[in-house]
Amino acid sequence: MSNREIVVQNLVKRYGDFTAVDGVSFHVEAGQIFGFLGPNGAGKSTTVKIMTTLALPSAGEVRVGGYDVVSQAGQVRQIAGVALQEIGLDPLMKATELLIMQGQLFGMSRQQAAARARQLLEIVRLTDAVEKRVGKYSGGMRRRLDLALALVHEPEILFLDEPTTGLDPASRRDIWQEVRRLNREMGMTIFLTTQYLEEADELADQIAIIDRGRIAAAGSPAELKARLSSDAINITFASEAAVEQARAALADMADQVQTDRRVLRLYLNRAAEAVPAVVRRLEQTGLEPQSLTLTQPTLDDVFLAVTGQRFLSEEKAA
């Protein structure tokens, strides 16, 4: 039994002159779902490859389940289940064949592996597709089979590198449901990378945001949102000129003001209580808003605040 924790300390990974991971540290507790969130090229997959023994760190220490990924790679492979971003499946084989072989390679007898394969095919709902070669699978089916392969040896720690990238919303929800079930019922520690804020918000107990190889922010989803102190009042006007006028009139009432075409955003604490004063001020200046809404900070706002760039939203990505 491992301790089911992941400890990463000052991890650095250089490729020549390029530093892909630049002093990353975090701690995943046993039984947690940990979301590693960041845009493409931020260093997520590199970190996963190091944690799963496929690549070596340039500096720093990584322990998975208490085992050092450099000197105890064999032990790490025994307790870690891995579904990489690039799904690696032999297109000429069938799901059952792949699962049975995986089980045998992990030391199961053929009978044990066959029983486990049947069980997993049911879990990932591929029982109808067992006669098809994997080359004929859809993207969602390939992801689900890849997940099943990662689970064959009942790992204590599961690594999922962008498990839902490229999936349709229904398949995505299936994977989410399965991830939650594995975590709840088996107590599996799950390390998940994602580009989707919604996914991290939905699944993760703890989140680290990685940007250009560094951890930009870390904490629970609620903590991260709370760190952005303010709620926002969003006021839409008929023209951009009106937005500029309103901005000048209201600037002193908010901690921070942003304009986005015909929308003016005022960031301030306890926005609801400030609404009457804002409306009065607008009436005094003769500006007529088309609509006024209140929003609480989203992880997207957190990301914007810590990295200075807006996150790829799920709709745009899909």
């Binding site: 025994q78 690039e86 690696g88 032999d90 390679l105 030391g107």
Partner: peptide, 17 residues
């Protein structure tokens, strides 16, 4: 080569083989 290009080779590297 088929395993190298499909990525299955990496998958096998992650087993105790």
């Amino acid at each position: 080569v088929r395993d190298l290009s499909s990525g299955y080779f990496d998958k096998l590297l992650l087993t105790p083989v």
